Amino acid sequence: MRWRSVKQGKIDKSQTETKQKDYSPAPISDRLKAFLTDTFMITMPIMYIVIYLVMGSREGFREHMAAGWLYIIIPHYLIVTFLWTIKGETPGMRAYDMKIIRWNSLENPNFFQSTIRYIAMPFSILSIVGVVIAFFRKDKATFHDLISLTRMIHVPKK
Rank of each mutant, 00 (worst) to 15 (best):
T43Q: 12
F112I: 14
P25N: 08
S24H: 13
Y52A: 10
K138L: 12
K138E: 15
G9Y: 05
M152T: 10
D12I: 09
H76T: 05
I133F: 14
I28Q: 03
G68I: 10
I46Y: 10
Y77I: 10
K13M: 05
I46V: 14
I79Y: 07
K33M: 05
Y77E: 10
V80H: 09
Q20N: 08
L146A: 05
K19N: 08
I72N: 00
S29F: 10
K140Y: 06
G68H: 11
I73G: 02
I46H: 04
A34M: 01
D12Q: 13
N110P: 07
L83P: 04
I51H: 13
M93I: 11
A95T: 04
I125A: 14
G60I: 01
V129F: 15
F61I: 00
E59C: 04
A26N: 04
K19E: 08
R117H: 06
I119W: 01
F111G: 05
D12C: 09
T43G: 12
Y71S: 11
P109Y: 03
F82P: 06
K21Y: 06
P25V: 06
G60P: 03
K158D: 10
R31K: 13
Y118F: 14
Y23G: 02
R102C: 13
T18H: 10
H64T: 02
V131M: 12
S105I: 04
L53P: 06
V155F: 04
I86F: 14
L83Y: 07
I153D: 04
V50I: 03
L32W: 03
F123G: 15
A141L: 09
K33D: 00
A67C: 10
Q20K: 06
A67M: 15
W3S: 11
K157S: 07
I86K: 14
L36Q: 04
D145H: 08
G92P: 04
M93W: 08
T90I: 05
S5P: 00
T37I: 15
T142Y: 11
S127T: 15
L70S: 12
Y71T: 11
P27A: 09
L78C: 07
I72C: 11
S5F: 09
P27D: 02
D30G: 08
L83V: 02
Q113R: 02
T43V: 02
T85L: 02
H144F: 14
F112H: 11
M152I: 13
Q8G: 06
K21A: 14
R117G: 00
L36F: 00
A141M: 00
T81Y: 07
W3T: 12
P27N: 06
N104K: 09
R58E: 15
P75Q: 11
P45D: 03
L106Q: 05
G88S: 04
Y77M: 12
E107R: 14
I128V: 13
A120D: 08
L126Q: 12
V50T: 07
M121H: 00
G56M: 08
I100K: 01
L32G: 02
I153L: 01
F136P: 12
D22P: 05
D22R: 14
I101T: 01
E17V: 14
Y23V: 04
I73P: 02
F123E: 12
L36R: 03
M65N: 07
R2V: 09
P109N: 09
K13T: 01
I74A: 10
K99F: 13
D30N: 13
S105Q: 10
